[in-house]
């Protein structure tokens, strides 16, 4: 299990805006975006997650991480430990398997310029 809570606590931000995942070969890169009330800049904290590893949930520090992590689990397959909503189906009906990881086509998409 990958520990993120200690380092998130060190940042001492006012708000957690979002958690993004950029897929790449063999795993994901998770970006946590924080914002402060008196600064213009957004601060990031990134962490590499290899395939199949679990990440500690940030729900003890920021309560709205519950929804953001549930979204990531359902659509990208990144598992979070300690999130009571992690089994919640947000985007699909009950009784169905979640999707496999979202296939990222990357930049090799178009042959002719848009």
């Amino acid at each position: 299990m990958i520990n993120v809570v200690d380092e998130i606590k060190k940042i001492k931000a006012d708000r957690l805006i979002s958690i993004t995942s950029v897929p790449k070969d063999g795993g994901d890169t998770l970006y946590y975006h924080f914002s402060f009330n008196d600064q213009v800049e957004i601060k990031e904290f990134s962490i590499e997650v290899p395939k199949g590893e679990k990440v500690e949930s940030a729900i003890t520090v920021y309560e709205n991480a519950a929804l953001l992590e549930a979204e990531l689990t359902e659509l990208f397959g990144v598992k979070f430990e300690g999130n009571p909503h992690s089994g919640q189906r947000l985007f699909q009906a009950e009784g169905s398997e979640g999707p496999k990881r979202c296939i990222n086509i990357g930049t090799n998409r178009v042959k002719k310029d848009a």
Binding site: N104, G106, R109, V110, D113
Partner: peptide, 8 residues
């Protein structure tokens, strides 16, 4: 939006 140029 993936894979396209910025204007698209």
């Amino acid at each position: 939006a993936e894979g396209y140029l910025l204007d698209t």
